[in-house]
Amino acid sequence: MKYYDYPKLFVLALPVAIFFVTFFIVPMVQLAIVGASGDSGVSSYFTIVNTPRHFESMLATLLLSIAVTFTALVISTTAGLFLVRNIFPGKEIVLSILTFPLAFPGVVIGFLIIMLAGRQGLIGLVTKALLGEKTVFAYSMLGLFFGYLYFSIPRVILTIMAAAEKLDKSLEEAAKSLGAPPFRIVIDIIIPALKPGLIASGAICFATSMGAFGTAFTLATNIDVLPMTIYTEFTLNANIAGAASLSIVLGLVTWIALFISRSLSGQTIAVSG
């Protein structure tokens, strides 16, 4: 196109512009202003660094999300490849069950983790019978980790399966014919081919874990992840400015992480879910 038909372009861009301004710019600016409206003014944005409790909760959230993302990617890639490449009775049922947890709110997932690893949980009962001591980790970082993993895997596995279906089998055969052992084929052929899918689903998984609230609300009695800290500041401490500034920081950190992964993959990543 040599020239742009500006009036037409304006009309076409109007809906997206309205949407963007109403649902993104206005609330964000509002949030940013509220964040800076407290007693400490703009410097409340630095509480994340200054206040040890906030800094620790930011760090914990980041580490937890990274750990969940990598674990979910490893499990889902292995399982996704297996499901795409093998035909077995009941495959369709397994596939539909995999997407089942997608519908659960975070609270339900938290509840499931409590039933598994809580004080009256299954793992506690088994370990008590076997070792004489109850193992309880539902309310710790490990409990959160399993909870997040539980709702992350379905999101990741579906993207990986879609990518795995498009893998060119002849690439693997060519690598084999050149003498490549199986682990080299995974490293040199399969992972590079799945890379866009891995980055896309990893980004979704990371963003969801950073902002997950329901599961954290159910489980995090002793630990603080950032969404919980925001909730506490907002409701219990009535520190609206602090809550707003933490929200902006949480958004920014997640956005930066996604931006980095997006530039690594060189592709557009649809962040949804």
Partner: peptide
């Protein structure tokens, strides 16, 4: 013997070149 041990060279209709290299 698996293909990787047979020492055969193979050329495919789709070329099967590795796109990441």
């Amino acid at each position: 013997l698996q293909i990787e041990k047979r020492n055969v060279g193979m050329v495919f209709q789709s070329y099967a070149l590795f796109p990441n290299m």
